[in-house]
Computed example of a mutant assay.
Amino acid sequence: MMTSVREVLLDQLAACHNDESWFKSSKTILEDISVAEAIWKTEGNSSSVWEIANHLIFWNEMWLRRFINDDIVEENKIENDETFELDHTKINEKGWNETKLRLHVGFLEWRDMISNCEVSKLERRIPSYFNAQWWNVISNLCIHNAYHIGQMMLLKKLMKQIDFN
């Protein structure tokens, strides 16, 4: 039996979200990171775990809106570097928990959307985005998530060498 595009996308989303497979999922990586650890950066590293989470939230939500609205192009006035930025008024336990929840919910929404959409939607082309098919864009979104989840995992490993108390 041949695996469907839907099954592959759901598998990729699960791996990024909460399925322990080839790499640690975002949920596993983020669950025990404190606020101090979430904002920590290595010398010369431009992003913290929290900033990376913000970046993933931005792109996951933006592409989900486009998918739901059938590619209604949003005027994007935000530069990519800005998607990493922290709201310094929310650097506290509540803000960090909200960020983790927002990332988690975004993965759940994507998985629900993929599970329930027509296959024809996944095969549909996006004229405003290189005429790519939706399944291809979503697959690349998963690769984007996996890349940045790897960055978060590396930062978490480096944190073990530091006393945050």
Rank of each mutant, 00 (worst) to 15 (best):
I39K: 12
M159V: 00
V8K: 05
F23G: 00
Q12V: 01
I138L: 14
D87G: 06
S4L: 07
R102H: 13
M152T: 04
L101G: 07
S128C: 01
H55F: 13
E20I: 02
N54M: 15
E82W: 06
W50V: 07
W50F: 14
G44R: 10
R6A: 07
S128V: 02
V105H: 10
H55K: 13
M159L: 04
V119Q: 11
H148D: 07
N97Q: 14
C142T: 11
F84M: 07
F67R: 00
T89D: 12
E74F: 06
M152P: 01
W40P: 02
L86C: 06
D71A: 12
D70N: 14
D19C: 02
C142V: 01
E74I: 08
T99Q: 15
H104W: 14
A36V: 09
S4H: 06
E79M: 12
L108N: 11
F107Q: 04
W135M: 05
D11F: 08
Y147E: 04
K41Q: 14
Q151F: 10
E118G: 01
S26P: 03
E37D: 05
A15C: 05
K27R: 12
D112P: 00
I33W: 09
N45S: 15
I138R: 00
I126A: 03
G150C: 08
A53H: 12
W59Y: 15
L86D: 05
L158S: 05
S128G: 00
Y129K: 04
S48A: 13
K41T: 10
S48L: 12
I126K: 02
H144N: 06
V105P: 01
Y147A: 05
Q133I: 03
V35L: 15
A14S: 12
L108F: 04
D70A: 07
L86W: 09
E85M: 10
N92Y: 13
I78C: 04
I162Y: 11
L10K: 04
T83C: 13
H17T: 02
D87A: 10
N140V: 02
I33M: 14
F67P: 01
E109A: 06
G95A: 09
T3S: 05
S115V: 02
I57A: 13
S46F: 09
I57L: 14
N80L: 04
K41E: 08
T42Y: 10
N136L: 12
N145Y: 05
S139I: 03
H55A: 10
L9W: 00
E85Q: 13
W110D: 00
Q161M: 11
E82T: 05
I143R: 11
F67D: 00
N140Y: 11
W96T: 02
L30F: 11
I78S: 06
K156W: 06
I72S: 03
C117T: 14
G95L: 10
I149A: 10
V5Q: 10
V8I: 15
I91Y: 11
G106F: 06
M62C: 02
D71C: 03
F23W: 08
I91Q: 08
T99D: 06
W50L: 14
L101I: 09
L13C: 02
D32P: 02
L56F: 12
T89A: 13
M1L: 07
G106R: 04
K157S: 09
R125T: 08
M1C: 03
K156L: 04
D81R: 09
K90H: 08
A132P: 00
I39F: 10
R124I: 00
Q161A: 14
D87C: 07
A53T: 15
M152W: 08
K27S: 07
